[in-house]
């Protein structure tokens, strides 16, 4: 069953047709990679899922509900979490606080003036956040400032923040961009492990074919704003159109 259903989505920026009649169907519990050359419209498409952009035409249905025309926080409350290309974290807060904030959002909704209890005494949220940090391997650093982390750790922290919400759908925008090979492999292992323990549906935008073919169950190839192929990684590897558009120069 498709948890995310994208139909006939088009988006134009001035003279540029960024997305042209895109159709995409993400099955529940799978890892769906979106690949394509620079400027193919991958990030634009992702922005249409989280309320940052509204497409000119088309529909985006998540879990039977339209994601268009509603605010980013409402989309998140519906169960969609996003990891950004450059980590978006609370830099001057500790790692533990960084994970507690989304945990509170999951427990208390999008707004609550919860001003009387002490944060330390909110045991359920604190223990939940600590467990997620443990799972992701950042527990020892939980009292350090998020800004003092390495780029790889920041990315893992952002994943921990998203995971603490138990999202139904996790969107990852180039989760290994700018990472060393070792960090990339660690991230792949982490995502695989999370796939086994949690089974969250993931949509991954990625440049690195190594990552795509290690993780993805399905791959959609975007070129010049259009999906030119959607299939399993193996089939995509052999697809002539894809090779022409993209893989020809970058295939390993």
């Amino acid at each position: 069953m498709a948890i995310l259903q994208v139909r006939n989505v088009s988006k134009r920026f001035g003279g540029l047709q960024a997305l042209n009649d895109v159709n995409l169907s993400v099955k529940e519990g799978t890892v769906h990679a979106i690949i394509g050359p620079n400027g193919a419209g991958k990030s634009t498409l992702l922005n249409c899922f989280v309320g940052r952009l509204d497409p000119d035409t088309g529909t985006v249905m998540f879990d039977g509900k339209s994601l268009l025309g509603i605010k980013p926080h409402e989309i998140n409350q519906a169960g969609v979490s996003r990891v950004f290309q450059t980590p978006e974290i609370f830099g001057d807060l500790s790692l533990l606080e960084n994970v507690m904030i989304p945990s509170f959002a999951r427990r208390d909704g999008d707004f609550k003036v919860n001003w009387w209890p002490r944060t330390d005494n909110e045991r359920d949220v604190k223990e939940h956040a600590e467990a997620v940090l443990q799972e992701i391997g950042l527990y020892e650093k939980r009292h350090e400032l998020a800004d003092s982390m390495s780029r790889g750790d920041k990315r893992r922290l952002e994943m921990a923040m998203c995971l603490s919400q138990d999202p139904k759908l996790l969107l990852l925008d180039e989760p290994t961009a700018g990472m060393s090979r070792a960090d990339t492999n660690a991230t792949i292992d982490l995502l695989k492990r999370l796939g086994e323990t949690r089974g969250i549906t993931k949509v991954v935008i990625e440049h690195d074919m190594h990552v795509v073919f290690s993780l993805a169950d399905y791959v959609s190839v975007l070129a010049q704003g259009t999906v030119i192929a959607e299939n399993t990684p193996e089939a995509i590897k052999g697809d002539q159109r894809v090779k022409e558009a993209y893989l020809g120069t970058e295939a390993e």
Binding site: N76, R82, F90, I101, D110, N114, W115, R118
Partner: peptide, 26 residues
């Protein structure tokens, strides 16, 4: 207020309002 979850949310506003919105908080 400073030591409460509400105070933490206010510090989150200062720290990164965009992340806050994408984290399901208004």
């Amino acid at each position: 207020i400073f030591r409460s979850p509400f105070g933490m949310m206010l510090r989150a506003v200062k720290s990164n309002q965009q992340r806050m919105n994408y984290t399901g908080l208004n």
